[in-house]
């Protein structure tokens, strides 16, 4: 396991990169800033993902697919801040946590209802729900938490 301080720094740079640009940085972009070689940066990335198992790399690659609450791979949960839609949430549940990445900002989540495709929209600021459309929006966990359920937890 890599140095905890370096792991924290890599984690923060990935999260900050996602927040600032909507895209997770590649490990090679971060390695020099962290004072490590590119290969050590790659190993550091794997160490971070192991320590943060609610996110994942795209299979058989070193590319970040999911780094909750945001997703590097687009999902149906579009996130808009300051009028710009450049982010995606990992899932409908994590979408309600994105607000904590943008303190003081109104965060809007737009997604199609998986049943009918009609819009589901939520606006939040600093953890508070400001507006919901339609008013009856609910969250639903289809497989249950825990590895024993045998399906990805984000479903």
């Amino acid at each position: 396991m890599a140095d905890a301080g370096l792991m924290d720094r890599m984690f923060q740079r990935i999260m900050r990169g996602l927040v600032d640009t909507g895209v997770a940085p590649h490990y090679a972009e971060r390695a020099r800033a962290l004072g490590v070689s590119v290969e050590e940066g790659r190993q550091l990335l794997h160490g971070v993902m192991e320590a943060y198992p609610i996110g994942w790399l795209h299979p058989e690659t070193d590319y970040i697919a999911s780094f909750p609450p945001l997703n590097n791979l687009p999902t149906q949960y579009r996130v808009t801040v300051r009028g710009e839609q450049r982010w995606f949430a990992q899932c409908g549940f994590e979408a309600t946590s994105v607000t904590w990445l943008f303190p003081g900002e109104t965060v809007r989540i737009d997604a199609p209802c998986p049943d009918c495709g009609d819009p589901v929209s939520v606006e939040m600021r600093d953890g508070q729900i400001l507006w919901v459309d339609p008013p009856g929006v609910v969250g639903h966990l289809n497989y249950g938490f825990g590895a024993s359920r045998g399906r990805p937890s984000f479903l």
Binding site: I109, P114, C116, V120, G136, G139, H140
Partner: peptide, 24 residues
């Protein structure tokens, strides 16, 4: 882990699992 327009919409979803009735 999805957001639906209502519980009725979730129950109509073809992928809705019967065991997930208490998943709201």
């Amino acid at each position: 882990m999805n957001l639906f327009r209502s519980e009725e919409h979730a129950r109509r979803w073809p992928s809705f699992q019967a065991k997930a009735e208490h998943g709201f």
